[in-house]
Design a protein around this nucleic acid. Sequence first.
DNA 1: ACTTCTATAGGACAAGCGTCCTAATATGTC
DNA 2: GACATATTAGGACGCTTGTCCTATAGAAGT
Lengths: 208, 208
Amino acid sequence: MVNGSVMGTKTTREHIVEAADGLFYENGYEHTSFADIAQAVGISRGNFYYHFKTKDEILDAVIALRQTNTRGMLEEWEARGEDAAERIRCFIRILIANRAKIMAHGCPVGTLCAELTKLDHPAQADAGRIFTLFQAWLSRQFAALGRAGDADELAMHLLARSQGVATLANAFRDEAFVNREVELMCDWLNTCRADTPDEDLKTPEEKH
Amino acid sequence: MVNGSVMGTKTTREHIVEAADGLFYENGYEHTSFADIAQAVGISRGNFYYHFKTKDEILDAVIALRQTNTRGMLEEWEARGEDAAERIRCFIRILIANRAKIMAHGCPVGTLCAELTKLDHPAQADAGRIFTLFQAWLSRQFAALGRAGDADELAMHLLARSQGVATLANAFRDEAFVNREVELMCDWLNTCRADTPDEDLKTPEEKH
DNA sequence: ACTTCTATAGGACAAGCGTCCTAATATGTC
DNA sequence: GACATATTAGGACGCTTGTCCTATAGAAGT
């Protein structure tokens, strides 16, 4: 029977991937062992091997899960935020919502990409694609804001700022700093709209 | 005889620390083994143990080296840059100067802090102190720029932006992005001075 | 009831790790 | 030249790692 995780009962495989996701985030990929994950799930290492033959396979599954979760989150923001600026603000505010975890372990995406780079791991590109999801989504929002011309650049800029805040929040454990930077990003976002008010007012409808 | 590395001949210990510094940067702390470092220096693992009894000891030495190097770099900028704004621009431009290495391995400070966090390593605080060196130095520059009131915040802001650029430069390997963001930071720096021109013109001299 | 497939457990394995020990060699000092 | 110290080499150790194998228990299908 194939359980696609539709019901409340989760597959063992799903349990494994979720536990690995958390452990990779908190302790890093390399520093997390098969035994650690197995213990977290409450299964034996042998059973583990039945589901994943290789550590790389688990990593791939974790990255795929994060991609899926990210897509879901972006869709939710897309549905919730009434205008593009408010949607972008949803993105900015994850720094507030996930403040505690970010201060404790950094950004899940940024730290994973950095670690995989150092390991020269084949999954580098896949992990980087999570960044691309955010980048593309933000870019579309900025385009909807009337900044189609430099939407990609604006998206990268905002992504970079949020990454920098995550890194320093982790290093300094300074909550006030996070709040301040979030404010600054929101201020900056407002100036983005003001730059081209004419074109913005002409095409406020959805474009795809 | 105690060789304080004054002459051209370097101590074996210094060779080890420098090799470890490079390997920790390129491959990460945990992913670098005693054997790796010994091989890089060209000595036996036994000799290695004579100089460092523990992997943590090497890490401490590497962090101390980086602190020293950072202090030296900051002093050099202090001496070279004619005014505070130019000195801050020296900081911003390391993203350009170290572009290739940053795209390949990220920021040495940021990635080390992130890794030590995940390992829950005792040296976390020491590594974080390298960030503090930059922060304090930048803060003094902003104060000299006439922004004594919010110098700390401005310093953290700039530090965060450079960290974000380093992270994304590493993930996307996008050189144009780095150049663009450096430009933006320089632009932002110019607006900093303009904010309080009166006070700035009254006290342009050094304060310590 | 019997077989087949899925899932779980537990241990075996070689390799690599940090650590430590001992023997040999260089480098002085008297 | 004899001796003490500083430095190097090389291997042994116990442990953990990722990987793999085999045996057992349950569910499904006939």
